[in-house]
Design a protein around this nucleic acid. Structure first.
Lengths: 225, 225
DNA sequence: CAATTTAGGATAGTGACGCTATCTAGTCAA
DNA sequence: TTGACTAGATAGCGTCACTATCCTAAATTG
């Protein structure tokens, strides 16, 4: 297909496609002449992926490039790729292998996980815990254990759900799964807050999730905003 | 204290403090003269909060302003404030009350939660699910249930942990808790991935979390990057 | 076969964002 | 009185993710 068709199919503007081509995010089409190239479904899919990583996950273009290179490179080792992918996710933190991350270490020890400061998520955790502390809401051990148990359940499932066929798809699955499902988790957590809050704190008559099997309740008169 | 001291105590540059004052994020100090004002601990704490929301949570300055106004406004209703706070979190989505969010609705129905399209997190969930779908990794029912159970555990704890004394602190707690702990969850999930992946996929001899009580294992020779 | 459309490549410009730098003028301690 | 400090106003900067404009040339259409 021609560029114009790619524009239509993907919903991405020509200017942006040219930009992604320049930046090396989108692979060039097969040149049919000096002034014409042929694109296919892989280009459509790649554009969807680029937009998802940029718009939904919130990754900067340069980090998207890293993740895509990781997926494309058949030599990458699955386990190492996971670490690489994580370090490309926002908020980006430049980890210092020499540095100590006391809050993260304490947290991981409490959760019974190994503390490997080289994992890119360790400085991310440290910074997040430090931020919570600095605003007067330090992470309690109790909360840590609740959260730790919850993420472990997700993690176990995520890893087991990685297809065991060829490395390529397994790689793509693990790399993208970490990134793509993160906004889903965030949105679900926010909705869980709303749901629990409506049950515990909301006005009487607010629609709530019934504790046991029961009837759907009527919609609220005004939106909870 | 004077501005220079506030700069020192907070670690925020004078130029940035002036910027936050201009933007209405930081409340002005008590003017002692035409050219001098007095700041206190509340200003130090506020600056820490501003930085945490901007740097760690990744909120744009204008959204930070909304969240701070929400915290400062004593008239706000706790339950409504939760929704407001959520809508200020990135990635920002302008929800259309008229619109239907089929993926989000199906997901919530499956989880047994009420579908209230007015909740700001509903369009966020819709977009996240659509993005997963568009890159060829649609959210399976199984994964949805695992995630749903996990976030519910966190949500229940979060809401119960809100202090029941004065409205002001409860408000601050619920609003900030949603935002501040989100990066913690993200980092913990990434670490859970690493931890589980190391156990299931990692090279032999890699440090792993023992299944039962056991010895700490030695650090790896090279970093998993 | 001429005219129009479309494509590719290069380069410069745009608008939002989060500061940052400079300037002015007033104040206060030494 | 001199020099450091301050508030307030305004303009500028660097990054980011595009976006718009040229130019050239091939391909398509009438």
């Amino acid at each position: 297909m021609r560029v114009s068709e790619l524009v239509e199919r993907s919903g991405v503007s020509l200017a942006s496609i040219k930009y992604y081509l320049r930046e090396g995010l989108l692979m060039p089409g097969v040149a049919t002449s000096v002034t014409g190239a042929d694109y296919d479904e892989r280009h459509v899919k790649r554009l969807a992926l680029i937009r998802a990583l940029i718009d939904v996950v919130g990754m900067p273009v340069q980090k998207v490039k890293i993740v895509l290179a990781l997926i494309d490179d058949p030599d990458a080792e699955l386990f190492e790729a996971l670490g690489q992918a994580v370090s490309a996710l926002p908020p980006a933190i430049e980890g210092d292998p020499e540095a100590d991350y006391p809050r993260a270490r304490a947290a991981l020890e409490r959760l019974g996980q190994v503390y490997v400061p080289e994992y890119p998520a360790v400085p991310q955790l440290e910074r997040a815990l430090a931020a919570a502390e600095s605003v007067g809401m330090p992470m309690s051990d109790e909360r840590l254990e609740v959260y730790g148990r919850a993420v472990m359940q997700m993690g176990e499932y995520d890893i087991r759900a990685i297809p065991s066929d060829g490395t390529a798809s397994a790689l793509e699955y693990s790399v993208l799964g970490t990134a793509i499902y993160e906004p889903v988790v965030a949105a679900l957590r926010r909705l869980a807050h709303q749901d629990v809050a409506a049950r515990l704190l909301g006005p009487a008559g607010w629609p709530t999730t019934p504790k046991g099997p029961g009837e759907k309740q009527p919609a609220p008169r005004s939106a909870p905003r």
